[in-house]
Amino acid sequence: MLRAPALDEDRVCRYRLATHLSPVAGPLRLLDGDFPHPEPLRAIAEHNPRQTLSLPRSGA
Rank of each mutant, 00 (worst) to 15 (best):
A60M: 07
N48M: 13
E39R: 09
L2T: 10
I44F: 07
L28G: 00
S58E: 00
N48G: 03
E46V: 03
A18V: 09
D34V: 09
D34T: 05
S58C: 11
L7A: 15
A4V: 12
L31D: 02
A60H: 12
V12R: 14
P27G: 04
N48P: 05
A18K: 03
Y15C: 10
R29E: 06
L53C: 07
L21G: 02
S22R: 13
A18N: 04
L21D: 08
H47V: 04
L17W: 10
P27D: 05
T52G: 09
L28A: 00
A18F: 13
F35T: 03
L55K: 05
R11T: 09
D8W: 03
E9D: 13
P27V: 01
R3W: 10
P5S: 09
P36E: 07
Y15A: 15
V12Y: 08
H47W: 08
A45G: 03
L7V: 04
V24A: 01
A25P: 01
A18Y: 11
H47K: 12
L28T: 01
P40D: 06
L2K: 03
P38L: 04
H37R: 13
P56R: 15
R3E: 15
G33E: 03
L28P: 01
Q51H: 08
P36S: 10
A4I: 06
R50H: 12
H37S: 12
P56W: 07
R11M: 11
L17D: 04
M1Q: 10
N48Q: 13
L21I: 10
G26A: 15
